[in-house]
Simulated scan of single mutants.
Amino acid sequence: MKEDDLFASFACRFHHLGLACRSIDRETQSWISLGYRQEGSDFEDPIQGVRGRFLIGPGPRLELLMPSGPESPINGMIDRGVKLYHHAFETPSMNDLLAALGAAGCKLTVAPVPAVAFAGRRIAFFLMPNMNLIELIEAELSDGSR
């Protein structure tokens, strides 16, 4: 299977863009001026070391993430001046897609872990050969299971 067929083959759908920031409150104010608004409640994920907030508006859904402590991986992004740092996609076939991505030369950077932002559904991160960071989100099945 070719790499460019993977997301279609595994029924992936775009979910959000991840943005690193020092303060989700300050960052939100800039996006509100462009017509965005908060979607749901803020969350804190101790496994990921982040505090976050989703925004929706005239463009794609945004996930604003700030470090929740000194060991947060977000600190490194901010220190390097990286703002937009990942694209996220939902998939109903997390394990199979991860195997296919590995075979296509992508590097798993965060193995599947439960995520607070998605009610315990698993997320995983991988780095594509072109250095783009992608987050996979385990889709909730129509019966509410995973």
Rank of each mutant, 00 (worst) to 15 (best):
P114H: 12
V113T: 02
F125L: 09
L101A: 09
A115K: 01
A115V: 07
P114Q: 11
F118A: 03
V110H: 08
G120C: 08
F125W: 03
C106R: 02
L101P: 00
A111I: 02
G102I: 07
P114C: 09
C106V: 11
G105V: 09
T109R: 10
A124S: 10
G102A: 14
F125R: 03
F118Y: 07
R122N: 06
F126G: 01
L97Y: 06
V110N: 09
V116R: 10
A103K: 14
F118N: 02
T109H: 05
I123F: 03
L98H: 05
R121S: 08
A104G: 14
A117V: 08
A124F: 10
M94F: 07
P114T: 09
N95F: 03
A104Q: 12
V110G: 03
S93D: 13
K107F: 03
S93M: 12
L108Y: 08
A99S: 09
D96G: 15
A119I: 06
A119S: 14
D96R: 15
T109S: 12
P114N: 12
G120A: 05
A124V: 05
M94D: 10
G120N: 02
G120F: 03
A115G: 05
L98V: 07
L97F: 02
T109W: 03
I123S: 00
D96E: 15
I123P: 00
R122W: 02
A115D: 00
S93G: 05
A103G: 11
A104T: 12
M94V: 11
L101T: 09
G120T: 04
V113I: 04
A117F: 03
I123W: 01
V110L: 15
L108W: 04
V110F: 12
V116W: 01
A99I: 14
A119L: 11
G120R: 10
R121Y: 05
A115T: 04
M94L: 15
A103Q: 14
F126N: 01
D96C: 11
R122H: 11
A111Q: 15
L98Q: 03
A104K: 13
M94N: 06
A100W: 07
A103W: 00
F125G: 06
G102R: 14
V113A: 00
G105W: 09
D96T: 13
A119T: 12
V116D: 04
A119N: 12
V113P: 00
N95D: 15
V113G: 00
N95I: 13
A124E: 01
A104S: 15
A100M: 08
G105L: 14
S93E: 15
A115Y: 07
L98G: 03
G105R: 13
N95C: 10
L101Q: 14
G105I: 13
P114W: 07
V116F: 08
A104F: 06
G102W: 08
T109D: 02
G102H: 07
K107W: 05
A103T: 10
P114I: 09
N95H: 14
